[in-house]
Design a protein around this nucleic acid. Structure first.
Length: 386
RNA sequence: CGGGGCGUGGCUCAGCCUGGUUUAGAGCGCCUGGUUCGGGACCAGGAGGUCGGUGGUUCAAAUCCACUCGCCCCGACCA
């Protein structure tokens, strides 16, 4: 749809809020992407939500490509399930709990091994149904002792969690390998520079885990963590299947998490300059920013609107900065929110019928005829790879 | 959870130590009019806070004391 800045909701600011420490947090606040409601609890404003959805889309595509199947589990869970897995006390205060009106202890899921194992034990009975990997993209709740760095360590955040079930260890190796490959593709597509490290499995348990750590100044990061769980949950929760030899065996599990909201921060940590964010094409909230320098000049504004609708009809997401403010402010805001390509319509259009393109990441302008814009952009996308 | 810090218009902050000319200020933002319009313009006018909350000390509290709530930082912890 036609998107004009004046009709959008994009509150940028010159100053970062006092409590922002790391660059991604500062920029997300200044670029009008997020708003803090409470410690570790954030609203994704339209621009931030758009980026979040882009990342989510990449994660979903790559999960589906491996043959994993998406479902959606509830955030609300009965504590009884966690008693069964013996993790109720282990997770402790980090789990947000409450007693419902029937005096039943409930909790907001910090992770979903229990729920998925419960589903699988009731529906998967035969080796013929294996292997299977199920995943969801969902809001998780963790009452962090100390929320930090904006959305990097939040108490409510978006996570993709996948769970694989195999007949045996060999199968787990295959499922695990597929996920690991998918993770590499996901982070690469998001423009993240990352490393893989062996890690402590913590409360999740299992015998082996690796974490994906995004490079940057931020001391956190970890953006993904994959585990070979083995039969920890399937045995304690009795998720058995009948194998080809007629014997009952526990499913061999793996689980695979990605902090979707954390990826957004990690992308910024690795893609910014003094002026603001520089979105990789793959996750940019808009691909093109159209700037009519003087919106009172009808020739300029008409041209801007025409370019805008031409691009839109070619399936390119465009934001038109139709605000009645100085050009300098538009440029500053444009740099801040990091839209990859700009089309600037100003005096050069009046003088010689040319507009200017700016490539954000190169911080470079060049002239172009208005009728060539769409083609140039299509080629640029192809060249840069989206 | 231990240690430290901070809460004053939408945002960033000054004032607090040495209570009383402060009808509580500034910058940014916002509104109106005008001049501007290629890198966060300028002039003039204007709106907006009772100083996180409660209680106390005092003739008098944004300023002192106590409690409380919220937020941030360091540490420990962290799929």
């Amino acid at each position: 749809m036609y998107m004009k800045w004046s009709r959008y909701f994009l509150p940028t600011s010159k100053e970062p809020p006092k409590d922002a420490e790391i660059i991604s947090h500062k920029l997300m606040c200044r670029a009008g992407m997020i708003d803090k409601l409470s410690s570790g609890v954030y609203t994704y404003l339209p621009l931030g939500y758009k980026v979040l959805r882009k990342v989510e889309g990449i994660v979903r595509e790559e999960m589906n490509r491996t043959g994993a199947v998406e479902l959606l589990m509830p955030s609300l869970q009965p504590a009884s399930l966690w008693k069964e897995s013996k993790r109720l006390d282990e997770m402790g205060e980090e789990m947000i709990r409450f007693t419902d009106r029937h005096r039943r202890l409930m909790l907001f899921g910090p992770t979903h091994e229990e729920v998925i194992t419960d589903i699988v034990r009731r529906y998967i009975n035969s080796w013929k149904q294996l292997p299977i990997t199920l995943y969801q993209i969902q809001t998780k709740f963790r009452d962090e002792m100390r929320p930090r760095f904006g959305i990097v360590r939040a108490r409510e955040f978006l996570m993709k969690d996948a769970y694989s079930f195999d007949r045996d260890e060999k199968g787990l190796e295959v499922s695990y390998g597929k996920m690991k490959d998918a993770y590499k593709r996901i982070f690469a597509r998001c423009g993240l520079d990352f490393s893989i490290q062996q890690a402590d499995s913590g409360v999740i348990g299992g015998k082996f885990s690796e974490e994906f750590v995004a490079k940057g100044e931020c001391p956190e990061l970890e953006v993904g963590h994959i585990f070979k769980l083995g039969t920890k949950y399937s045995e304690t929760m009795k998720a058995f299947f009948v194998d080809a030899d007629g014997k009952e065996k526990p499913a061999v599990m793996g689980c695979y998490g990605i902090g979707v909201s954390r990826i957004v921060a990690a992308i910024i940590e690795g893609n910014y300059d003094k002026k603001g964010i520089i979105w990789p094409l793959s996750v940019a909230p808009f691909l093109v920013l159209v700037i009519p320098v003087n919106p009172e000049d009808t020739t300029i504004i008409n041209t801007a609107e025409k370019i805008h609708s031409d691009l839109e009809s070619n399936g390119i997401e465009v934001l038109l900065d139709d605000r009645d403010i100085s050009a300098g402010m538009k440029f500053s805001d444009g740099d801040l929110i990091g839209i990859p390509l700009w089309v600037v319509i100003g005096k050069k259009f009046i003088e010689k019928g040319k507009v200017e393109m700016k490539i954000r990441k190169e911080d470079r302008f060049f002239e172009i005829e208005p009728e060539n814009i769409t083609q140039w952009i299509s080629e640029y996308i192809k060249r840069e790879g989206k």
